[in-house]
Write a protein that binds this DNA or RNA. Structure first.
Length: 145
DNA sequence: GCCAACGTTGGC
DNA sequence: GCCAACGTTGGC
């Protein structure tokens, strides 16, 4: 799951413990969130950063529910086509597990042959993408090395 | 700040 | 339902 660290980074999640992952306004990403189950591991990716990359590990704490920021006119994520009666957008809750001792930069990840199939590299505009278990294991091992 | 990729909108 | 125009994301 991607977030711009200037807006919401791994440090904020650590401070909060558990946080709603609100503001996703892309159907593909929303659907990936709807498919998540509590306990699913989440890689926290810092986008639009220098460098961008994976900053830590979290987990899904609550299955998808309506993203109420979508009908809040004061929210930057407001969507006039969403309402409490007809919520268009969803979010999950995410719980902090750990920050990696070092950032796994996009550049480094791209050079790992076993990871080349990751949707992260192929649809760079998706803020939520699934990670295959073998990729997850490789990444967690990289983070520990 | 530029630009490529791509999702969304809306006219027809 | 097509597709051009436009907006957004995100790497660099």
């Amino acid at each position: 799951m991607k977030s711009e660290p200037e807006t919401f980074g791994i440090a904020e999640l650590e401070r909060m413990g558990t946080s709603p992952w609100d503001g996703v306004r892309n159907y593909t990403s929303r659907n990936f969130m709807r498919a998540m189950a509590p306990g699913d591991r989440v890689l926290f990716y810092h986008s639009n950063a220098s460098p961008s990359g994976i900053a830590g590990l979290a987990e899904v704490a609550r299955t998808a529910y309506a993203d109420h920021t979508s009908w809040d006119p004061a929210s930057p994520y407001f969507d006039a086509k969403s309402s409490p009666a007809n919520p268009r957008w969803s979010m999950v809750d995410v719980r902090f597990i750990r920050a990696f001792p070092r950032l796994l930069a996009l550049d480094e990840l791209r050079r790992v042959p076993e990871l080349t199939g990751m949707l992260l590299f192929h649809n760079t505009r998706l803020s939520v993408t699934p990670v295959a278990t073998p990729c997850m294991d490789i990444i967690l091992r990289l983070a520990a090395s």
